[in-house]
Simulated assay, not measured.
Amino acid sequence: MIVEAVMLQVKQGMEEEYEEAFRQASEIISSMKGYISHELQRCMEVKGKYLLLVKWETLEDHTFGFRESNEYQQWKNLLHHFYDPFPTVEHFEKVRLSY
């Protein structure tokens, strides 16, 4: 499993509209192969700042399966116009710790 982590900055005054669009977009991403879960968190200190965490079975499920799909085009049309600056997407894997 991998975690996609994205820090998002939504244009000022568009937060409510963004959250509604994200609710719609959630249906798209949750239908994709390899999708496990996702959550959107609103920053308490900075207005318009959000953290998106998406769990995927594999990196390829996100980078190829989702990003190269027709569903991604719908996702993009719903959400990308809200961001300024455009976010950087990073992927993380769990560090195995032995005690």
Score class of each variant (00 low, 15 high):
residue 76 K to W: 15
residue 44 M to P: 02
residue 36 I to M: 08
residue 42 R to D: 04
residue 75 W to T: 03
residue 15 E to W: 01
residue 10 V to P: 00
residue 49 K to N: 02
residue 54 V to L: 07
residue 7 M to V: 15
residue 58 T to V: 08
residue 91 H to F: 13
residue 95 V to Y: 12
residue 13 G to Q: 09
residue 73 Q to H: 11
residue 15 E to R: 04
residue 64 F to E: 13
residue 10 V to Y: 01
residue 96 R to K: 15
residue 51 L to Y: 03
residue 11 K to G: 11
residue 73 Q to T: 06
residue 85 P to S: 11
residue 37 S to A: 13
residue 45 E to P: 00
residue 88 T to F: 13
residue 49 K to L: 04
residue 95 V to L: 14
residue 19 E to L: 09
residue 56 W to Q: 03
residue 66 F to C: 04
residue 40 L to E: 00
residue 11 K to V: 11
residue 29 I to T: 10
residue 67 R to S: 02
residue 51 L to K: 02
residue 50 Y to W: 02
residue 86 F to W: 11
residue 51 L to N: 01
residue 48 G to L: 05
residue 25 A to C: 10
residue 71 E to R: 08
residue 15 E to C: 01
residue 14 M to Y: 10
residue 24 Q to C: 08
residue 67 R to P: 05
residue 29 I to R: 02
residue 93 E to P: 01
residue 44 M to W: 05
residue 17 E to V: 08
residue 5 A to F: 06
residue 32 M to K: 10
residue 12 Q to K: 11
residue 60 E to S: 07
residue 31 S to R: 13
residue 99 Y to S: 10
residue 78 L to N: 11
residue 6 V to A: 05
residue 56 W to T: 03
residue 90 E to A: 15
residue 94 K to S: 14
residue 82 F to D: 13
residue 70 N to R: 14
residue 30 S to F: 00
residue 5 A to Q: 06
residue 17 E to P: 03
residue 9 Q to H: 14
residue 68 E to V: 02
residue 7 M to L: 15
residue 98 S to M: 14
residue 96 R to S: 15
residue 99 Y to F: 10
residue 45 E to I: 02
residue 29 I to W: 01
residue 84 D to Y: 14
residue 34 G to W: 08
residue 87 P to S: 10
residue 36 I to T: 10
residue 80 H to E: 15
residue 25 A to H: 07
residue 22 F to Q: 03
residue 99 Y to I: 13
residue 75 W to H: 12
residue 14 M to R: 14
residue 20 E to L: 13
residue 83 Y to E: 15
residue 35 Y to W: 12
residue 5 A to G: 06
residue 61 D to G: 04
residue 92 F to C: 08
residue 55 K to T: 03
residue 23 R to S: 13
residue 76 K to R: 15
residue 11 K to N: 12
residue 98 S to Q: 13
residue 89 V to H: 14
residue 26 S to M: 08
residue 12 Q to W: 01
residue 75 W to A: 02
residue 86 F to G: 05
residue 62 H to Y: 09
residue 60 E to A: 11
residue 70 N to E: 15
residue 42 R to A: 07
residue 7 M to F: 12
residue 93 E to L: 10
residue 36 I to L: 12
residue 6 V to E: 04
residue 12 Q to Y: 00
residue 13 G to D: 08
residue 58 T to A: 03
residue 43 C to R: 04
residue 23 R to T: 13
residue 51 L to S: 03
residue 62 H to V: 04
residue 75 W to P: 02
residue 51 L to M: 09
residue 51 L to F: 09
residue 27 E to Q: 10
residue 84 D to E: 15
residue 68 E to D: 11
residue 30 S to P: 01
residue 86 F to K: 12
residue 83 Y to N: 12
residue 37 S to C: 06
residue 94 K to I: 11
residue 82 F to P: 07
residue 56 W to P: 01
residue 25 A to I: 07
residue 50 Y to T: 00
residue 55 K to S: 00
residue 39 E to D: 12
residue 41 Q to C: 07
residue 16 E to Y: 08
residue 38 H to F: 09
residue 80 H to G: 07
residue 78 L to Q: 12
residue 60 E to P: 03
residue 69 S to W: 01
residue 4 E to K: 01
residue 66 F to E: 00
residue 23 R to V: 09
residue 99 Y to W: 12
residue 50 Y to M: 03
residue 9 Q to P: 01
residue 95 V to P: 06
residue 14 M to D: 06
residue 31 S to V: 09
residue 77 N to V: 12
residue 34 G to Q: 06
residue 36 I to A: 09
residue 59 L to S: 14
residue 25 A to W: 04
residue 50 Y to I: 00
residue 67 R to H: 05
residue 33 K to W: 02
residue 8 L to H: 03
residue 95 V to W: 12
residue 73 Q to W: 09
residue 47 K to A: 08
